[in-house]
Every structure is written in structure tokens, then in C-alpha cells.
Design a protein around this nucleic acid. Structure first.
Lengths: 110, 110
DNA sequence: TCCATGTTTCCGGCTACCCGGATACATGGA
DNA sequence: TCCATGTATCCGGGTAGCCGGAAACATGGA
């Protein structure tokens, strides 16, 4: 059984978090939580260039955050694990409370 | 009441996630979850240069992830919100399952 | 086999992030 | 007021990340 050092585990942990720390990737993850979509659909939905979306999906795939499957010429992506949304929502709640205590900008975030 | 656009909210969300996406900052957050500590204590505990720790703490403070209070010449830091740990643990669980399905490196992470 | 559709990769370039030693700054006691 | 302790900032420099147009690559139907 191969093992990793504590530092390597920490690095993997941070890479998972980094995967969902980019604004575009956050949008992609939430979009895939609604329903699975292919690259073009995501690009249109997010109003983002297709190459950009594809690049981010590659990152998410490498980190294991999403699955992909072919459907003819299209590639359909879907979320690997619901807990990714759970983690994002948790941080969003933390943020909402932060803003609340600072008494500003509450409406959109919460 | 001042509001933010959807894009700005997304950006804030990503900044919160980014705050806990650096390996060193993850270590700091977990260390502060055990007990509050000052900069020097953290630096020694994490075997990391004091200036580096201080810089990361500033980031975490700016993002509202930690509190600080003075105790004489020292500045003591503590976690703002337990849910930060919750989110980190969630992502760690996702990672652990990922590695499990890939059948390697399981022991340390889980 | 040729083409339409959809995807990935390449490219040049810019920005943001991270590092750690050294220096400057704050605090409270002698 | 001077000093010891602890903290924050400065600095130079390296690295990683992000961008979007363009070109190359897959796929399945005509």
C-alpha cells in the first residue's frame, strides 16, 4: 500500500480546495449541480468563451471534482460528489454571516 | 442598503474559498481550531518562518476568517467561525473518497 | 470520405500569488 | 527612556494561474 507524507496530503487537500476557488469554476460547479451539461451548453449558460470553460473543466476533471462521458461529438460533464456543493454552500454561509455582521451587501449573497 | 452584483458576490465567494486553499493557511486554520495562538507560537508549531505566517494571517484576517486581539506585545489569533473547519473537513472527505476509489494513498488522508 | 458539430490544445502575454531574510514598528516592563 | 519581546512590512525574485482567439483534433452522419 502506497502512502503519502503529511505534507503531500496537505497539498492534495489544498488542491481540492483550489479547484473550487476560482469564480468561473464555482459557477461551473453550481451549473452542473442543476443538471449535467456539455461544454457548449455551459459556455452559453455562463456567457464565457468555450475554450475557457473547457480549460476549467479539465482542471476539475484532473482533481476528480467532475465526471465526463461522450455523447456523440459532445462531452457531457457532471458533478462527482454532492458534498462539493455542500462545502461551497458552507463557505457561502460563512460569507453571508460575515457581511451581515458588517451590516452591508447582505441581499445577494444570502 | 448597499448591494453587490451577482459577479461581485461570486468573487467574494471565491475569495473566501481561496483564503483556505493554500497549504500553509489550511495548516494555520486547523492549528487555530485546536486553540488560539499568537504568531510566534504558530510559526514554531508549523515550522514556518514568522514573516510567512504573519503574511498568511493578514490574508485570513482580511477575509474575515480569523480574529485577532492584542496581549501585550503579542497578537493572538483565533478562528472566526467553526464552519470553516466544517467546509475543510467536507472537502477532505471528498478527497479521501476519491483516493479510496483510486485505491491508493488512503491511510494518511482519511 | 467529406463535412458539420463539438471539444481540446496551443499560444503569447499578463496578473496574482508565494517565499523568507532583513528591517521597521509596537508594546510593556525596568 | 531604554530594552526585550513580538509583530508587521519591505524587498527582490520566482512561479503558477488565468485569459480568449486560433488552430488542431474527435465523432458520427450523409
Amino acid at each position: 500500500m502506497q502512502t503519502v507524507t503529511y505534507q503531500e496530503a496537505q497539498l492534495l487537500h489544498s488542491q481540492c480546495c483550489q479547484a473550487i476557488s476560482d469564480p468561473t469554476r464555482i459557477c461551473i460547479v453550481y451549473a452542473l449541480n442543476e443538471c449535467e451539461r456539455n461544454v457548449t451548453e455551459l459556455a452559453e449558460y455562463l456567457q464565457t468563451p468555450q475554450s475557457t470553460v473547457s480549460r476549467h473543466l479539465k482542471e476539475l476533471l484532473n482533481r476528480g471534482m467532475v465526471h465526463s462521458r461522450r455523447d456523440g461529438p459532445a462531452v457531457i460533464y457532471s458533478l462527482t460528489d454532492d458534498r462539493i456543493i455542500q462545502a461551497l454552500d458552507t463557505m457561502r454561509a460563512v460569507l453571508a454571516d460575515l457581511l451581515r455582521t458588517r451590516a452591508q451587501w447582505v441581499d445577494i449573497v444570502s
